[in-house]
């Protein structure tokens, strides 16, 4: 049975197609200002790439912030449940998930069957989210993709004391004008995000093995900082960014829910 998952986040939209739990393909695009059309475009693009006909897809689950804007979806499910399902499919022994998305960061505790036992999400503020890193990358005039590698070259990470994105940005600007190295500032930013996320993780008593999902999992600098703060190794799948969409497609197959 072929099923699809569409995960519309605040920054990127992801789609995944599964056949009986096997990943046929995934795709990522920008969400932009119209969540619904981004969902359709990424989904149809993936279908075309795989040479599949729409009628072959038995069910579609939409998730993420734009989940209710996918009119052709069979069901809308939150990203918390989808990330749990995705992680369980990719690595059945996973007990916890840390997901850092564009607007939200979350820690999820899983039961043995891949169901959500407990979860904690960031408060309303953007600190500790992907958007926070984007803002900082802009202030430092460096591509977000280079962020992770750059911070690994740091010798003394700067201290970013503010937890507010706006204040932290002005703090970063004063660090720049003070002449601190970009590498040290980025490492400081990662430590600040890692502290916020670690607090969330502690709230649900996360247990090993822990998987990190979401686009931010590609950032090796943050992953390293998080592993150090948590004192745990993070499992990062090659599908980390599309994990929510994979979980959505898996839920669509009725295997988990």
């Amino acid at each position: 049975m072929i099923t699809a998952g569409i995960d519309i986040g605040s920054i990127t939209t992801k789609a995944a197609i599964l056949r009986d739990g096997e990943i046929l393909g995934t795709r990522v695009g920008f969400t932009g200002y119209n969540a619904g059309s981004a969902g359709t475009a990424v989904y149809l693009g993936l279908m075309k790439e795989l040479g599949l006909d729409e009628s072959s897809v038995k069910a579609i689950v939409s998730t993420g912030y734009g989940r209710n804007s996918v009119k052709f979806a069979t069901k809308a499910v939150t990203e918390i449940t989808c990330h749990a399902a995705g992680a369980h499919l990719l690595s059945p022994g996973i007990k916890s998930i840390i997901d850092i998305g564009g607007q939200d960061s979350k820690a999820i505790l899983l039961g043995p069957d891949g169901r959500v036992r407990d979860f904690a999400m960031n408060d309303k503020c953007a600190a500790g989210t992907g958007r926070f890193l984007e803002v900082m990358a802009r202030a430092l005039e460096i591509d977000l993709d280079e962020f992770g590698e750059a911070s690994l070259k740091s010798d003394t990470p700067a201290v970013i004391s503010s937890i507010c994105t706006v204040f932290a940005e002005s703090e970063v600007i004063s660090l720049i004008s003070r002449g601190d190295s970009r590498e040290n500032i980025i490492a400081g930013i990662h430590e600040s995000v890692a502290s916020r996320v670690t607090a969330l993780a502690r709230r649900v008593n996360i247990a090993d093995p822990v998987m990190m999902t979401g686009g931010v999992a590609k950032n090796i600098g943050l992953v390293t900082a998080l592993e150090k703060k948590l004192n745990m190794k993070l499992i990062i799948s090659e599908h980390a960014q599309v994990n929510g969409a994979i979980g959505a497609a898996q839920i669509a197959a009725g295997i988990v829910v």
């Binding site: 912030y65 499910v77 939150t78 990203e79 918390i80 449940t81 607007q103 939200d104 169901r115 959500v116 036992r117 407990d118 979860f119 999400m121 309303k124 829910v257």
Partner: peptide
């Protein structure tokens, strides 16, 4: 944000 938290909470309650 509130909607996602409530929906996820209810999904968790429903699956528990």
């Amino acid at each position: 944000q509130t909607e996602t938290r409530i929906d996820a909470f209810m999904e968790t309650l429903a699956s528990g």
